[in-house]
Each structure stands twice: as structure tokens, then as C-alpha cells.
Design a protein around this nucleic acid. Structure first.
Lengths: 150, 150
DNA sequence: GCAATTCTGGACCTTGACATCCACTTTGAC
DNA sequence: GTCAAAGTGGATGTCAAGGTCCAGAATTGC
């Protein structure tokens, strides 16, 4: 019961990126979030197509959020990798339930609606740990190198 | 995102049985709930082992609820076929999160807790449609036959 | 221009959920 | 006792999600 593994990975990566606006490479994010690097690559591609993150190729490239973390909700991230399916029609296809869900499916859909509401009203910015944002140890080093070059 | 197919099947079957205390055979329940008969058989076995339903073999056998529908919650049924996993430890295994979930997993677990609460407080009795309990057309016939024999 | 870096996208493999099938046991009716 | 009805449990099949791998394209530094 609940969120798929892929959604969990996508959320970890998104929060990880929210904690470091400069951006990070896929291996860095993978290290921080403990997500299989090669699979994370796929997940980030999905987030990219959905406009949640932006990838930049080549030396010094990597991923960063496409918008400020405060303007990306948890639901945005979830929907990007696995569209949320509300229950709109009776799964049994009963004629009697054409426009009105039976009590069971009404109840299930209510729960789904509540979760959706909670996730829509939470932004990535709220999920970054102030004292210890999710990032690898060498992130600061990398950041410093970038500053030196500039 | 959400409940597995198996859970959906189990709930349909449970509500179906709640609508007819006399009991029904697997093919009957399958017909009513549009669940593949052979798979429903497995699901019902699971519900049986969990003490939600009782199966009776032989001619005139079938399944019925092991307790009154008002004393079986939606959560009981879900937990019977797929134990609800609350998030207790940080999935990343971070030492810093040993006893306190990070904001992300706290948020996810909160949502899960809310859903769990909603499902725990809803009984099967509340989900039976008064005017049209989920049951096949020949259920009444079957019921009548039983009454005649008695 | 060349080499190193990093994302992109397609092909492929693996695993578990979903589903089917069948031999067996239990039960009730005659 | 025999037969048909009905659940039980194990073996097996199927398919999509999860995961790996690699060739190619873009970018940067020299």
C-alpha cells in the first residue's frame, strides 16, 4: 500500500536538489539519496520532461530544480513520474454507478483526495532540513571549485 | 499510487459478503465483483487465514464473514492481504534520522497515518448499498432454496 | 580540434504481483 | 458408498515495474 519505489526515489532526488540550488550531478544525487545511479538517471529524465528539473550536459553540468523549491509541491513531483489516478468511474463498470460511486469506491476516493490535498499544499522548500540539507560531503568542495573558476 | 489490485479485490469481495450474510460461493462472488474467479479464490484464502471470512467446503458450501460486518473495518481487510507498512525508520538509513524521520518521510508517514485512521474507522456495514447490495441476480433464488430445505 | 565530462535515449535483464490451472480434500444428497 | 459440489494448496505462466548497460550527443577546458 502506497507510493511506488519510483515516486519515493523522485521525491528524495527533488528534496536533495532543493537543498542545493547550485545543482548536482547524477552520481552525487545518487550517493546522497541511496538510489541506484543508473535508475536515478531515468527518474531524473522523467522529472526533466515534466519540467521539474533541468539537466545540463558536459563538464560542470548536472541537475537543478527548474523553479524555486518553494514553488514545487510534493504532488508536482509525484504526478511527474506517475500520474495520480483518482477514482472517477466505478471499477466494476456497473450501470447503477455511472455517475455516483458506490460507498466503497467513494470512501477510497475520499482518502485519495485527502492525500492529494496534503501533498499539493506541501512544497519542497518545507522539506529541506535546515541544519543538514541532504547533500554529499564533497558538495561544498565542488561549490568552492566553481567559485574559484568564476 | 495507492492500493494494490489485490487489496481492491479483497475489499470488493468483503463488501459483497457483507451484503449477504447467508454466504456465497467463489464463482458467485467473482461474478458480482468482476474479479477473476481463480484469483479470487486465492484472495479469499488469504482473508480466511486472517480470520476475516470463513470458508465451508462441499455442497452448499461457500464463504461468509467470520464476524458481523459492523465489526470488520476496511483496514482489517487491507491488512489481511497486504500488511500496512508505516514508515518507522529513515529509508536512507541515515544515522541522523535514527529516531526522528526527516521532513520528507515524516510528511509521507503522516499521510499514511491519516489514511489508516480513515480506513480503521469505516466498517463493511457502512459500505453496503441499502437499495442494491452487491449480489448476483440468482442470490435470492439461492436464498429461497436454502429456506425451503430448512 | 581533442579529450574529458555529463546528460540522453534505447535495448535489455530481473523480479515480484497478478493470474491460471490442476490434483486433492471435505461435505452433503441420494 | 457413490457422486457432484465446493474450498485448499501447490506448480506454473505472464507482464509491467524496477534496474542495468552502453553508444551517442552536448558542453567545457585545454
Amino acid at each position: 500500500m502506497f507510493l511506488s519505489q519510483t515516486v519515493e526515489y523522485a521525491l528524495r532526488a527533488a528534496v536533495c536538489l532543493a537543498g542545493q540550488p547550485e545543482g548536482q550531478t547524477t552520481p552525487e544525487i545518487a550517493e546522497t539519496t541511496k538510489v541506484p545511479p543508473s535508475y536515478l538517471s531515468k527518474v531524473l529524465q522523467g522529472l526533466g520532461r515534466a519540467g521539474i528539473v533541468e539537466g545540463k550536459r558536459g563538464v560542470g553540468g548536472g541537475f537543478k530544480l527548474a523553479r524555486p523549491a518553494a514553488r514545487i509541491s510534493v504532488l508536482d513531483v509525484i504526478a511527474a513520474v506517475e500520474p495520480v489516478q483518482r477514482i472517477e468511474r466505478c471499477p466494476l463498470g456497473l450501470a447503477a454507478h455511472a455517475d455516483k460511486l458506490c460507498p466503497l469506491h467513494k470512501k477510497l476516493d475520499d482518502a485519495l483526495a485527502e492525500v492529494e490535498r496534503a501533498f499539493a499544499s506541501t512544497t519542497l522548500a518545507e522539506l529541506v532540513e535546515p541544519d543538514q540539507p541532504l547533500q554529499p560531503l564533497d558538495a561544498l568542495v565542488r561549490k568552492r571549485r566553481g567559485a574559484e573558476r568564476a
